[in-house]
Write a protein that binds this DNA or RNA. Structure first.
Lengths: 209, 209, 209, 209
DNA sequence: CATGAATGAGCGTTCATTCAT
DNA sequence: CATGAATGAACGCTCATTCAT
């Protein structure tokens, strides 16, 4: 006599999660405007009113997903701050570790990352904040005498974000490279540049930078 | 002083161009799907049928704008190929010039660039092709003994595209830096990296990369 | 006494059928292109989206109606084939029965018949097939020695279809004659023709007309 | 200094006729509502305003074409009345001649016939009038002792119109049979019917078919 | 005689959202 | 907890028709 009219073991929390999962996939695939509630509910085998039982609106569920990513990113930043405090002689390794963590975050949360970092209107803000933090880290390294400051640190920070972004889209999410690989390549590139220093045991042209 | 506020007998070519201009702005601002024909024609002070007098469909005008950007990019690439043939001792300058040209293109054609490079489905393709061309250039520099190949050239090329992309969005189009400035910073960064080489007249660690 | 004037929570199947009914009437009256969804839904006291709740498109509902008629016609043909197998001395009666069945079909399904037989692009095909079947029947009668073949049987078949068509439009659907009446008249006409055989003391078959 | 701005020897009467010709073709092919002014003028190499220089509206040119057919049909009827006055012993031939004339009219004026006889709202009326005249002719033949009246003459008349209509569409306009052939077959069919008179040693009128 | 440019009115269709049950 | 049924608002597009030149 219980379960009357219920569809196979309906469970509010379950439905909600299912809807979020499917919505994440759809938003990641097609963006906000091209994702249709009707598609989401169809795939979740529930009806449209059920959707509105759990989410106030299309905007609401989208924002919830964006916030999820924001949270993960925030956590990462918190942790990285800690680790950045540890003074270490192995500069390259330390930097690579930081980047690896970022790429891993993107790899493990592809869908909400797509939404939060590429599909939302807040993504600009998030990237800006990320750049800011990187800039601060860079400044520390300069102070510590590891990095020169011949290039504008904000520009460098923005460049790093741009590279992370593009490598994630074209390599990481295509399965071409692992987080570790990408992190290592990036680190080498940003640390030492492309120039081939003639090992004539003499002075090189980095001086005039 | 004639023709003021005239609706009938106006200049067709002008109407067409006006519509394109407004459409470009709208597409750049809101993307394809969120741009409404009704908005475009309202801003152009014409009615909807007038739009269809000049464009077959919403898709058609969008593609026309995308193609405009593709054309400009193609022209740029053509020219850069020529100049890249000229062997020059001033490597840094040469690279900076190439980047300056790209940033200038983006600066002078902001709207269609937004559409073609950021808003269209072809944008991925265009970036891929751009990366490919950059990779080829890098390979030449390696052969010529200017660059090392300690990092995967394709990864570098993709990184460069990512940096151009992000700097354009966050610096160039915000009016913070000029094409020349951005090009120079980028060149320095990618050529020499961030590492501060202790000028103790000794060997540097690029060797073990 | 409940449900009076209710818009929400109404019976979906009923709405669907109501829409089909009205659509049938409209298509029959004005043809496909001049029938407007707006008219249909207005008459059904629902809004346009409701229409699309039940039918994929204007084409879809039209085709559904055409198919309904095709089905009925097919069924009729199936049955008539069976009965045509029964050899009978009463040729005239048998033929009249066949025609009666056809006219009854048209009478009982006026609207979808109008659509399928007069308003659709398939109508030509259906008439052609109908003629073909009639031609086959005629050929059998010729073989059986009932009919001569002084006239081309295909022409006769087409003529019969033409007569059915026109009598349906001008007599049956105007309520002037019953299926039986029309069938009998047609049979007499096609069997014996109009000519008056001079009663020169010999037998002539016009007598039993 | 004349002809300034004129398109190649523009001549009002010529343009008008050209438009009518093309309109006739289009109306015949696609019916009234599916024929577009824009298509007509494009094919005539004139602009839309030019169309309205010669015709008040889409309805107007359509009606003009319908009237053309009505005129031709009227003329035919006039003539046939005259010829029907001539008493002749060769009944079959006389009737065939009448039908031939009708089929010829349809053959020589296919396009306006399609419009007037099949596509217009007046077509019913025209067919009704045609049937009426045929009925009168039949009545005369009955009075003259040529035809029996075992079948309702109005029904017969309508049947004849139906046959003409359908044979025109499926045989004449498909180029399968000539007016003469169709007329002869129709005549034989309607005069003598399909029945095979058993040749019980006596005369039967099927012989001379 | 003819046109380039424009429009009012309307059509088929879609989507996020909401009742009543 | 869930649904069947419905809708307001909007969108892309088309067509016959009309000015001003």
């Amino acid at each position: 006599m219980n379960n009357r009219g219920r569809k196979k073991g309906a469970d509010g929390e379950k439905s909600r999660e299912l809807l979020m999962e499917i919505a994440a996939k759809q938003f990641a695939l097609h963006g906000f405007h091209e994702t249709k509630i009707s598609t989401i509910v169809k795939e979740a085998h529930v009806t449209q009113p059920t959707f509105y039982l759990y989410f106030k609106s299309k905007e609401a569920i989208f924002q919830e997903l964006v916030d999820m990513f924001k949270g993960k990113l925030h956590t990462l930043v918190e942790q990285s701050r800690l680790s950045s405090g540890i003074e270490s002689a192995e500069l390259q390794k330390r930097i690579a570790n930081g980047l690896t963590a970022i790429f891993r975050l993107f790899q493990d949360n592809e869908q909400i990352a797509r939404i939060g970092f590429f599909g939302s209107e807040e993504s600009f803000d998030m990237k800006k904040k990320m750049a800011k933090q990187i800039e601060e880290n860079l400044a520390t390294e300069v102070e510590n005498g590891y990095f020169h400051d011949n290039v504008d640190l904000n520009t460098v920070a923005i460049a790093i974000v741009g590279v992370i972004e593009h490598l994630t889209l074209t390599k990481l999410w295509k399965g071409i490279n692992s987080p570790e690989e990408l992190a290592e390549e990036m680190t080498k590139l940003f640390l030492y540049g492309l120039i081939l220093v003639p090992s004539t045991g003499t002075i090189q042209n980095t001086s005039e930078l």
